[in-house]
Structure formats: structure tokens, C-alpha cells
């Protein structure tokens, strides 16, 4: 399988008054048209990894890598203009909280239309048809009405489905989902992830699902990277998570409660067992 995305020794750093701080310290991975999960706690560098693929880390942040190739294109040497043609059209990203990630003064329909017409010049009528079809694809029942709503008029779950529609309408080949469900109620989390999973599989896209929820990632992904303080500490197939060897992963797994268990107390992570934080 030829790799859709290959990243080698990715480093992201930010200057502080005490010198540069590296938040991603040499991450490498390969991705085909499959579903890759990146798991880690807050500050582990998983979101920064996602954003640096789209070159969305701004000055004074600094991104370096030995290799960062998307479908044969060297992302490192792409100009800002060339990146714009890739963003949205070929690599897209679903962000965390629709309350903040949707423009409050544009209707849902306008925002989805913008994602499409930025990359494809289409007649107005066709744009409208594609929007309605896309809203239906993310299981919105009344697409004509919803397209005319403003973000503050839709619920969180619906907002996130709008976000997914907006990011998938130009048919990208890779979708980065950065904690797509952590701002949602548990009851709609599965619904939203099912939609992502469904669309990604039928369109044969690559998916990077960034999350702090081990269970969720192992259910929706083929492969898992576990990150801690900027480095990948574990890489395994989703089904083989129980066989993880790194003390951090083992600690996380042990800290998960199981139904009908005998343990009196859940263990706390013992961070002295590895070099991380």
C-alpha cells in the first residue's frame, strides 16, 4: 500500500522567555487510506501534530521535519498559496467545538458553500444541490431549513455534523478530526463518529482521529498511536491494544473502569516509570 501521508521526525517548537520549548519531539508515522487514531492527554502534542500537517502553525511557532509527504507532494516546500489549494480540497480538518469553530454571523449554508466554491467554480444551482445532498449525507433531516440557520440556532451535535459536511464537501482525501466529539454530549458522540466513519470508509479516505479517549479510538480506528509529552510512545493495531507494552499505555488501560469489576480503587498513573511527564 503506497502511503497517503508519511511524516518523519516532525518537530514543533515555540519560543518562550526561557528559550524554545518543543511540544512535538520527533514524531514519525505513515498513513494509507486507513483510519489512524492519535491518543494522548492534554499537552501531549497530538493537536499540534494534526495542525502542522496543514501548516497551520503560525509564527513564532516553528515546524521542522525530515520528511512530510502527502500523496507524493512535499508539504514542507509548499508555498502558502500552494497550501491553500491543498487545504480543504485535499486535506481537511474537523475541529473540536462547533460553538467556536463556526462563524457566528454566516448561515450554515453560506459556510458550507464557501468550502466548496473556494476550490471549484460551480453554478449557484449546483452549489445548492450539493449542499443539500451533503447535509443529508450527515443525516440532517430538514437540510433546506438547516442551511438557512445561523450557528447559534443549531445544537452542538447538529453543529458538528454541519462542520463535517463543510469539511467533506470538496471531497478531500485525508480528514483530520481533532477531538471531534469532546464538546458533545455522550449520547450524540457515537452518532457523530458513526457519520464520520461511514463517510470516510465509503469515500476511501484517510482519517486521523485525534482524541484523548482510548476506547473511542480503538473502536473507530485501524491503528493507534499513543503520544505523551511530544513523542509517540506506542504504536499498535487497534485490536491489539491489550498487548501494549509501554508503561504509559498500560497505565492508561489499567485506569479504565470495567463493568462488574472487583477493584476497590482505580490505579493512578505512575509517571516515574518512563522518561515522560
Amino acid at each position: 500500500m503506497s502511503a497517503l501521508l508519511s511524516v518523519e521526525n516532525l518537530r514543533v517548537s515555540f519560543p518562550t522567555h526561557r528559550g524554545r520549548v518543543e511540544v512535538v519531539k520527533g514524531v514519525s508515522f505513515e498513513l494509507g487510506r486507513e483510519r489512524l487514531g492519535i491518543v494522548g492527554e492534554s499537552g501531549s502534542g497530538k493537536s499540534m501534530t494534526g495542525r502542522s500537517i496543514l501548516k497551520l502553525i503560525h509564527k513564532p511557532g516553528l515546524v521542522t521535519a525530515d520528511r512530510m509527504e502527502f500523496d507524493g507532494v512535499d508539504l514542507r516546500s509548499q508555498s502558502e498559496k500552494q497550501m491553500r489549494a491543498i487545504r480543504g480540497a485535499r486535506i481537511s480538518m474537523v475541529m473540536q467545538d462547533p460553538k467556536f469553530s463556526l462563524n457566528p454571523v454566516m448561515t450554515v449554508g453560506e459556510q458550507i458553500a464557501e468550502a466548496l466554491v473556494t476550490h471549484e467554480k460551480l453554478p449557484r444551482r449546483e452549489v445548492n444541490e450539493r449542499i443539500l445532498a451533503m447535509l443529508e449525507a450527515v443525516r440532517i433531516n430538514d437540510p433546506t431549513r438547516v442551511a438557512g440557520l445561523y450557528p447559534h440556532e443549531v445544537s452542538g451535535g447538529m453543529g458538528q455534523r454541519v462542520m463535517i459536511a463543510m469539511m467533506l464537501i470538496p471531497s478531500p482525501e485525508l480528514l483530520i478530526a481533532d477531538e471531534p466529539t469532546s464538546a458533545l454530549d455522550v449520547s450524540v458522540q457515537a452518532q457523530v463518529l458513526d457519520i464520520i466513519d461511514d463517510l470516510v470508509t465509503t469515500k476511501g479516505m484517510g482519517l486521523i482521529l485525534i482524541s484523548h479517549d482510548l476506547n473511542l479510538v480503538s473502536r473507530y480506528c485501524d491503528r493507534i498511536l499513543v503520544m505523551n509529552s511530544g513523542v509517540v510512545v506506542e504504536e499498535c493495531a487497534a485490536g491489539q491494544l491489550e498487548r501494549a507494552t509501554h508503561p504509559y499505555t498500560r497505565g492508561l488501560l489499567a485506569a479504565m473502569p470495567v463493568l462488574n469489576e472487583q477493584r476497590e480503587e482505580l490505579p493512578v498513573l505512575d509517571r516515574t516509570q518512563w522518561a515522560g511527564t
Binding site: R84, R87, G88, M93, T118, H119, M167
Partner: peptide, 14 residues
Amino acid sequence: QEFVTTARVKGVPE
């Protein structure tokens, strides 16, 4: 704001 990042993710010109 996040929605400005969203716009950039969509590939919208600066």
C-alpha cells in the same frame, strides 16, 4: 477565534 482557523482550513484566501 477558532472559526478563523476553520476558514483557513477550508483553504480560503487570507
